[in-house]
Design a protein around this nucleic acid. Structure first.
Lengths: 344, 344
DNA sequence: TCTGCCGTTGTTAGCGCTGTCATGAGCGGC
DNA sequence: GCCGCTCATGACAGCGCTAACAACGGCAGA
């Protein structure tokens, strides 16, 4: 018979045809554990041994199987991150900050998308948890009690973000959306606005911002200029349509507080298209301080959110937790800042 | 002695304190393999057995360890995705489409960020490959030969995207950036523009678009209005500054082709701020067809790229490849479309 | 010279799951 | 009554790696 024998128990290659640690060891004239050490704790291996091993790794094109590593060591090297959606750039900065810090520490990011339905999220988080991530972060607070309980049980270090709560599952890094809405509405009132409308989407964060808006109005003895304008999707187009709707419902409104910069920018564009003077006739305020806010004319008055830092800080805390350090503050408020520009 | 014995070989819980498949089996009065089947191929297990098992899973809060599963089955259930950056919304749509299709098929997304330096990317891809992903996708073409060779050796189904090449590592799904640049430049020429400038960033895709621009000019016997305006980062502010730079270098320019909608929008905003008539005095064209392009006044003439479909289609092809289906076309050109609006 | 320690390497035994084959019960057809 | 088939379940081994401990040589100090 010609060709390679097929019944040999080991042929120097794993099942997938890829070299295993043992093959590297054989090539370097040592054993598996030493190869493992050479790659993970280089200073525990004699320099020349290490050299031989690295040469063998190079020669064979060896890539460690991290599933096996995770199984044996009980450390996956993965941090999971759950976002409502990635398509909307709102959270991209946070993802970026998170992935930057986590990546630098040698972790890989397992991305989960979608937090719309409680059931779907429960499934998603379960699946992610199955990967034994060393930490888990989520944009927003987990609402579903069953899911919260599940996550607590897993004891995976976890960070909720972009909001605050007194009882995080583990940690929370964010800011008070309610206070942000409150502060911006107060700003509008201080600027003399008396008929202020709210434009927002339907998620938890928008709801909190709306609460702040409503509270501020009440404190000032004012009433909403119109029933809330709700949008289904956070797009510039939705912002424009919302503004038209507002003017129909309450032509006398003198300010629009948009729960999101994208909506605010849309509203601003519509105002300009309609020849409606901003801020003289109508003030427009947003929330988020996306880059475009400062580039528009008139520039958008908004609330600056430390999106990037939220992600980065969450990752840092989780790294500390992974390292076994004690975290003194489980609730981290990174605050926000009113950025007063021209539109309000 | 009181308290739990510590020398029992098994105590009904895995090392991490989490239940293992065996614990579920014990609780359900069956064996590990049947539990495995009940969860993975439910119809291979008798309904009542399945019921008992699911009840036990529920009661114990069992979450399968997917590292162990991946190791044993040689299928990780992971698809890896590498993007240049997530912070820029340019690719978010693609990530979204990819993750949607992959997620629906039960795959998890391992996200890799950063393709700037060849060496860093090599490390990143190696690390990702170590996770034994069932497929790998990347935005852009992998340039580094060593990395290409590595990826070929792993035999992981792989899709490069957002560009085309005759020799993909495995598959490529995208469009011709050169042709897109060419088509838009021709459009400008057809509209009577004769002094056309180029504004772009420094990545591979922008370079290809620039080539199309240069070719189109040459075919028409025209010359660039000015030396290329290069920007370091793709932001609205960079677009505005680039436009100012252009007007300084070539006040007589009658069109600006921006390799990216973000830059084009920035340029447009700057024009409006400076009171420069668009398109009468200066035409501005972009590439990407981001949402804001159609909402601005004047609306931006641009090239529509099927960003979402690129991601979705790449995922679909990879799923087919995972399923062992034969792929007839390894190079998929999803094309582009000139969207003529008001700005050019 | 002997002891004890350190630095280096190796042996063993799993980590938790699933592929593969074996087993056994139930059933219809001859 | 027996055969062969299907369906449901189980036993066993092993995926590729690393924790934990063992072993060994060399060396300083007693």
């Amino acid at each position: 018979m010609s060709g390679p024998s097929t019944d040999a128990p080991r042929r120097g290659r794993g099942v997938g045809g890829r070299p295993r640690i043992e093959d590297v060891a054989a090539a370097a004239g040592t054993t598996a554990i030493t190869v493992s050490r050479a790659l993970r704790q280089p200073d525990k291996v004699a320099p020349e041994t290490r050299q031989r091993i690295l040469a063998a790794v190079e020669a064979l094109g060896y890539i460690p199987n991290l599933s096996a590593s995770a199984l044996a060591s009980r450390r996956s090297g993965i941090m999971a991150l759950v976002v409502p959606t990635i398509a909307n750039s709102v959270f991209a900065e946070t993802v970026d900050g998170f992935s930057e810090v986590a990546g630098r520490a040698g972790f890989q990011i397992l991305l989960g998308q979608g937090t719309y339905s409680a059931e779907a999220e429960h499934r998603l988080l379960t699946a992610l948890a199955g990967r034994q991530p060393d930490a888990l972060a989520r944009i927003g607070i987990v609402r579903h009690d069953e899911t919260r309980a599940l996550l607590r049980r897993t004891r995976i270090p976890m960070a909720e973000t972009w909001d605050l709560t007194d009882e995080p599952i583990d940690l929370v890094v964010g800011f008070s959306n309610r206070d942000a809405g409150h502060a911006m509405t107060r700003h509008l009132i201080r600027r003399g606005r008396r008929s202020i409308a709210y434009i927002g989407s339907d998620d938890d964060r928008a709801a909190a911002r709306r609460r702040g808006y409503a509270d501020a109005l009440e404190e000032a003895g004012l009433h909403p200029a119109a029933p809330d304008i709700r949008v289904r999707e956070i797009t510039y187009g939705a912002g424009r349509r919302a503004l038209r709707a507002l003017l129909q419902l309450a032509p006398e409104a003198d300010a629009a507080f948009c729960a999101n910069d994208v909506l605010a920018v849309g509203a601003l564009l519509e105002c300009r298209k309609m020849g409606l003077a901003v801020p003289d006739r109508l003030a427009v305020a947003g929330l988020g301080d996306f880059e475009i806010a400062q580039e528009l004319t008139p520039a958008l008055t908004t609330v600056r959110i430390p999106s990037h830092r939220i992600g980065a800080h969450a990752a840092e805390l989780l790294l500390a937790r992974i390292a076994g350090e004690t975290i003194d503050r489980r609730v981290v408020d990174l605050g926000f800042e009113i950025v007063e520009r021209e539109s309000a």
